[in-house]
């Protein structure tokens, strides 16, 4: 029997140093293949960071939206 896939929501809004990429990396460490990570951030630098992270790790970004109050990235974990 395998564990059910989970959706992890991470609120990284207003994160100061070292920044929201820390929260994403930590959520990735705890994840398993099939999981989804949804992360909220306000740091404008998060958008290019999450894109670079997805390209490097090979985990696709399902959606990346920049709203007036937050950036929301949804990532599917397909490899690790």
């Amino acid at each position: 029997m395998t564990d059910a896939a989970v959706v992890t929501k991470v609120d990284s809004r207003g994160t100061a140093c070292p920044g929201p990429i820390t929260d994403l990396a930590m959520a990735y460490r705890r994840s398993k293949v099939g999981d989804t990570i949804e992360i909220w951030a306000t740091d404008p630098g998060f958008k290019p960071d999450v894109q670079a992270w997805a390209a490097k790790t090979g985990n696709p970004i399902i959606s990346l939206e920049e709203g007036p109050e937050k950036i929301t990235a949804v990532i599917r974990v397909v490899r690790r």
Binding site: G19, T22, A25
Partner: peptide, 10 residues
């Protein structure tokens, strides 16, 4: 480093 750059804060 697990970050995209040497120091995480740009």
């Amino acid at each position: 480093t697990p970050y995209p750059r040497a120091y995480p804060a740009q």
